[in-house]
Design a protein around this nucleic acid. Structure first.
Lengths: 195, 195
DNA sequence: CTTTTGTCTGACGTTAATGTCAAACAAATA
DNA sequence: TATTTGTTTGACATTAACGTCAGACAAAAG
C-alpha cells in the first residue's frame, strides 16, 4: 500500500500545521482543516484514521523539528557568540512562519497531556550548557545559571511574535511598525545577552 | 433581580479563570467548568445565558485586569528604575497565578476574533513611553525604540512561565529547579534591561 | 404558615463534530 | 480493453456539547 503519491497526505499535514502553528487556531475541527486543504473531510480519516492521530503526528513532528533546529545550533563548531547570532537568525525565520508552534504544543500538553517521545537529556544540550558556562567564565556573559541564559534567548525572540496580535490591539501597532520593531530587536537581543 | 448572593456567579467565573488562565485548558467545555465548580452545567446558562457570553465576560475582565495592572505601574510616581523593579514583582506574582492568561487571550483573538472593548491609545502609556525615552537619553537604558524596551520587559518575565511545561519535558526540569531559576531571574532581568 | 421570588436541577431537543462504510473514481498493470 | 489497486466521495450512524424549559427547592416577605 501507499504506492501512489498524490501529495494529499502531506497537503493535509501542511494545512494542519498552518492552521495550528501559523494562524493559532488551536481548536480547529477536521472540517476546518479539510476545507482549508480543499479535500473532503473523510480523507483525513483515510490517511490518519482519527483526528487524534493527526494531532499526535503533527505534534510529534513539531517537537522533532524543534529538536533538530536546536541541535543544529548546539552542535555547530562556531565560536560561541557567532553561534548565538546564527541561532537568532534561524529561529526568527522559523518563528515568522510558525509563531504559535510552541503555544500549540503547550496547549496540547495541558489539555491532552501529550508527552515527549524520547526522554534522553539530549547529549548536545549538555555540551551547549558547558559552552555557556565557559562564556560566563570568560566574562563574555553575565554570571547566571546557563539555563537562564537559554531562557533569555528564547524569551526575547519568541514572545514578541507570540503576543503580536495582543499588542497590536492594545497599542494599535501597524504591521509596518511591527517589522521595524523586529528588525531593531536582532541587534538589541545580542547586546542584551552579552557583556 | 440579583438579590440573593449565593456566590455561585463569582464561583463560576473564578473556576473558568482557573481552568483557562492557570491550567491552560483553552478548549474546556461548559461541563468541565461546571464539574470543576461543583455545580450543574445549566447554572452557567442561568447566570451567563451562553457559553460564548461567559467567555466574552472572562475575556473582558482579563483584559481590564491587565490594563489596571499596567496603569498602576505606569502612573506611579516612582523613579524609573524603581518603577520597573516594582513592576517586575507585581507582574511575576500575577503570572505565577495565571501563567496562561495572555496565551488564552491570543487564542481567543485568533479563533473567535475578539476585539478590545475600548480603543483609546491609553494616556498613561504615552507617559510611560516618554519616561523610557528619558531613561535612554540619560544613558540608563540602551538606545532603542521605547516599545522594544517594553517588549523586552514582558518577554523576560512572561515567557518562562508560559513555556514551563514544555521546558519541563524537554529538559527534565524539576519544580525545585524551576523555582531556583525564577528566583535568579529577578536580578538578571533588571541587569539586562539597564546599563 | 402561606406566598412570593430567586436559585438550582434534570429531562429534552438541537446542533455540530467525528468516524464508518459502501460505492464511485482514476491510475497503474495485465 | 479489462482488471486490479489505491484514492476519494457522500450518505449514514454515533457521540458530545450546548441551550431551553418546566418544575423542584429554599430563602425571604407577607
Amino acid at each position: 500500500m501507499a504506492v501512489r503519491d498524490t501529495g494529499t497526505e502531506q497537503l493535509i499535514k501542511d494545512t494542519a500545521k498552518r492552521i495550528f502553528f501559523a494562524e493559532g487556531k488551536f481548536n480547529a475541527t477536521t472540517q476546518d482543516i479539510a476545507d482549508a486543504a480543499g479535500v473532503a473531510r473523510t480523507v483525513i480519516n483515510y490517511y490518519f484514521r482519527s483526528k487524534d492521530a493527526l494531532f499526535k503526528l503533527v505534534f510529534k513532528e513539531a517537537m522533532d523539528d524543534m529538536k533538530v533546529r536546536l541541535d543544529e545550533v548546539l552542535l555547530s563548531e562556531l565560536a560561541f557568540k557567532k553561534k548565538i547570532i546564527r541561532f537568532i537568525d534561524v529561529f526568527l525565520m522559523e518563528l515568522s512562519e510558525y509563531p504559535y508552534k510552541e503555544a500549540f504544543m503547550i496547549s496540547e500538553i495541558n489539555t491532552h497531556g501529550f508527552v515527549m517521545p524520547d526522554k534522553e537529556p539530549s547529549l548536545a544540550l549538555k555540551h551547549f550548557f558547558k559552552q555557556i558556562q565557559e562564556a560566563i567564565d570568560r566574562g563574555e556573559v553575565k554570571k547566571m545559571l546557563p539555563l537562564n541564559f537559554m531562557l533569555n534567548l528564547f524569551s526575547l525572540l519568541a514572545y514578541p511574535l507570540l503576543t503580536r496580535p495582543l499588542f497590536k490591539q492594545m497599542l494599535e501597532i501597524t504591521d509596518i511598525k511591527f517589522e521595524q520593531l523586529m528588525h531593531e530587536r536582532k541587534k538589541i537581543i545580542v547586546e542584551m545577552l552579552f557583556v
